[in-house]
Design a protein around this nucleic acid. Structure first.
Lengths: 246, 246
DNA sequence: GCCCATCTCCCGGTCAGTGGAAACGACTCT
DNA sequence: AGAGTCGTTTCCACTGACCGGGAGATGGGC
């Protein structure tokens, strides 16, 4: 992958070195992983430090700085959706005793904008900021089912990544699942990401009635889902109302 | 304020136009508010769109893009502190029935990295991403009391902003309050930001024993604080342990 | 249809950014 | 104490990415 010529491109390539698996890096690692020459990397890092987009710890490791977090907190997904949804997610956790998640669609991914945990609940792999493919998650099935037809066709035409032996990988199976989600008004994701979890997801709509997010709880495999379905759908409607949905 | 000469400086100045009060803006607004010429603004905005750092809606208004939120979610304050603290904050809300907050210090500000709300609790002005001066908040008093002496002296030497008639504005009063926080191991903030709220805050320590955050609940003015003090201190210790504190 | 505001695009000029090389600092080993 | 290694920092001649005024395009309101 060639290094971008533009300065902004280089800065974002540098920032892109950080991930959940690598939340910090040395200067040399940043240079090596971004493909930028060492002195170029040094200059960019110095300026990103000045703008608080990066921080440096006592041992010379760099990590994402507070300023990027603050800027990110101004995104509509955070400032509007997530802040309004939080009280309802807390209700959902309290009522169902399971972990709750809120996700939006970005391309063919579900991006988790919040995850609240319940005491003693089955653990989940996502955290705020995680991405998972749409087809393999409850929230993703809801988001895809209500996405523009073009997005659905693109998803059906793309390789569908397998996570467990039960992950939906056949386009025909996915198409059928999406139709069922639209009929039912919710999705149940059965052992798609891990063999130990179900998830139950429902849509969240905005003032225009568009599905802009999905909310879910994650249950242990084999748990009864009917009460969870009711709770999640109710939560989805409450969040929708908070967003101004009719 | 002159426009920075560096491209990164200009980009951050542009992004700095966005705030909680102004989460979106048109191209012309971005140019006017940042001080950048229109065509310069247009070029920068176009590239920030490409990198998903900005988004544009159907009516031509720009807002912070998902990529900045994702990058920000990788900051230590979010990925390490906030993700680990969330379950304990949820516990605190459930037990005390009050809104809970988690904040870190940045200069002379308390930056709220999380705020969970309780049903029917007194509302609070902060949200994730908000800043308030240290001296005027419970979390801020805790963070300042345990900050390096140089930071404390700087705060004492700086103008102390008044929010209510009870806000601490005299350096001597603040010094005394900080000493008491260190003695007690917690802070009670009495009608400092609004006349209708107290807050009770306790420290959160890292593996090295340093105070890296503070947790609080917000009570209506006049409410008994003793039970809240116990709950908040217990929560602070639990989060500390999750961060590897001894 | 006209006016106005906003947005988009062009392109000659220039200075902010480039990156290899040298110097510096910290650490380890003998 | 000295040598070697590794990572970081600094320098500076060169250059092309960026600059931004101005012309044109677009869309909304009257």
């Amino acid at each position: 992958m060639p290094v971008p010529k533009s300065l902004l491109g280089r800065a974002f390539t540098l920032l892109g070195v950080f991930s959940e698996q690598r939340p910090s890096a040395t200067l040399s690692e940043l240079s090596r992983l971004s493909g930028l020459p060492l002195s170029t990397t040094h200059r960019l890092v110095r300026e990103l430090l000045q703008w608080r987009a990066l921080d440096r710890d006592a041992r010379g490791r760099y990590s994402i700085g507070l300023r990027l977090w603050e800027l990110g907190a101004l995104s509509p997904g955070s400032l509007d959706l997530r802040e309004r949804a939080l009280p309802f997610l807390e209700d959902l956790v309290e009522v169902t005793r399971h972990n709750a998640q809120l996700a939006i669609r970005d391309g063919l991914d579900a991006v988790f904008v919040e995850r609240l945990s319940a005491r003693d609940a089955v653990s989940v792999v996502s955290r705020a900021g995680s991405r998972l493919p749409l087809h393999a998650t409850g929230v993703g099935l809801v988001l895809l089912a209500h996405a523009p037809a073009q997005v659905q066709e693109l998803a059906l035409a793309s390789p569908l990544r397998r996570f467990t032996s039960r992950t939906i990988c056949a386009p025909a199976r996915l198409r059928e699942a999406l139709a069922q989600v639209r009929r039912d008004g919710y999705a149940i994701s059965d052992r798609q990401i891990e063999m130990i979890t179900y998830s139950v997801a429902a849509p969240v709509r905005d003032a225009g009635g568009e599905v802009v997010a999905a909310v879910s709880v994650v249950l242990p495999t084999g748990a009864r889902t009917d009460a969870a379905v009711s709770a999640v759908r109710t939560c989805g409607r409450a969040i929708s109302r908070a967003l101004g949905a009719p």
